Simulated scan of single mutants.
Amino acid sequence: MIRIAVIIGSTRPGRRAESVARWVADTSVRHPGVAAGEATVEVVDIAAYGLPLLDEPVPAAFGRYAHAHTRRWAQTIGAFDGFVFVTPEYNRSVPAALKNAIDFLYAEWHHKAAGFVGYGVHGGLRAVEHLRHVMAEVKIADVQTQVALAMFTDFTFTDPTDPTDPGTCTPGARQESTLVTMLDEIIAWSQALKPLRVPSTAPEPLSA
């Protein structure tokens, strides 16, 4: 079975990423592979891991994690075969919290597949393009199809004039079809890369 994590890539209070991730997870249950039990989709919220700004004394490529929060994050990511990154666009890039969470680890990302659901005024397109470059460095195969959610057409707001209203992610059928295609690609690539992956174990802490 292929395990896919929907990673909530924003930690901002009032974030819209949580609503987007719920839409991805709720829609994914109608994907034929998920419905047949060939794949599972789970939401992973980086805010729940309490990751500080990168504080490991040794670069992640060595896999020698000194801190409990890093080992907990590594154990979670290591257990998945593929990812859907949900990201807004901040100044033409991804949130610092998402980049930071990626940089904490290295081998746990290797030989897995990823797709992207961006959102924002421009659908998060520029953030996703930046994220694709990051994926290459951690040896993740990013799929071509991506979902771009526009603030004015794919969300419903109680008060559109209130900037603190996170709204609700309510995309139409076209976006759902795109998401299903993206999941097709993630599952296929995750399966294809499976022989390259090794079982992940929590890295040993650095000795005192």
Rank of each mutant, 00 (worst) to 15 (best):
I4G: 01
I4S: 01
V6C: 01
I8G: 02
S10H: 07
R12M: 03
R12D: 08
R16F: 03
A17T: 02
A17Y: 00
S19K: 10
S19C: 06
R22S: 11
S28L: 06
R30N: 13
R30W: 03
R30Q: 12
R30P: 00
P32M: 08
G33F: 02
G33A: 11
V34H: 03
V34R: 03
A35K: 14
A35L: 10
A36V: 05
G37C: 04
G37L: 04
E38Y: 01
E38N: 12
T40A: 10
T40I: 02
T40K: 02
V41A: 08
E42T: 15
E42F: 02
D45L: 07
A47M: 04
L51V: 08
P52T: 10
G63C: 03
Y65T: 04
H69S: 11
H69Q: 10
T70H: 07
R72C: 06
R72N: 14
A74T: 06
Q75C: 10
I77V: 15
A79V: 02
F80W: 03
G82M: 01
T87C: 07
P88S: 03
Y90D: 03
R92A: 13
V94C: 08
P95Y: 01
P95S: 09
A96M: 13
A97M: 04
K99Y: 11
K99A: 14
N100W: 09
F104W: 15
L105D: 00
L105V: 02
Y106T: 01
A107I: 04
A107P: 02
A107M: 10
K112P: 00
F116I: 00
F116E: 00
Y119C: 04
Y119W: 10
Y119E: 00
G120Q: 07
G123T: 11
G124T: 01
L125E: 13
R126G: 08
V128D: 12
V128H: 05
E129W: 12
L131K: 06
R132M: 06
R132N: 04
E137Y: 08
V138H: 06
K139A: 10
K139S: 10
Q144M: 12
T145P: 04
V147P: 07
V147D: 04
A148G: 13
A150S: 12
A150E: 11
T153C: 01
T153D: 14
D154Q: 11
D154P: 03
T158E: 14
T158I: 12
P160D: 05
P160C: 00
P163C: 05
P163W: 09
D165I: 01
P166Y: 05
T168N: 09
C169V: 02
T170V: 13
A173Q: 15
Q175I: 01
Q175L: 05
E176A: 15
E176Q: 15
S177D: 14
S177G: 15
S177V: 09
S177T: 14
L179F: 03
V180K: 09
M182H: 08
D184S: 07
E185L: 04
I187L: 13
A188W: 14
Q191F: 01
A192C: 02
K194A: 15
P195G: 07
S200D: 06
A202Y: 00
P203M: 05
L206Q: 12
A208M: 09
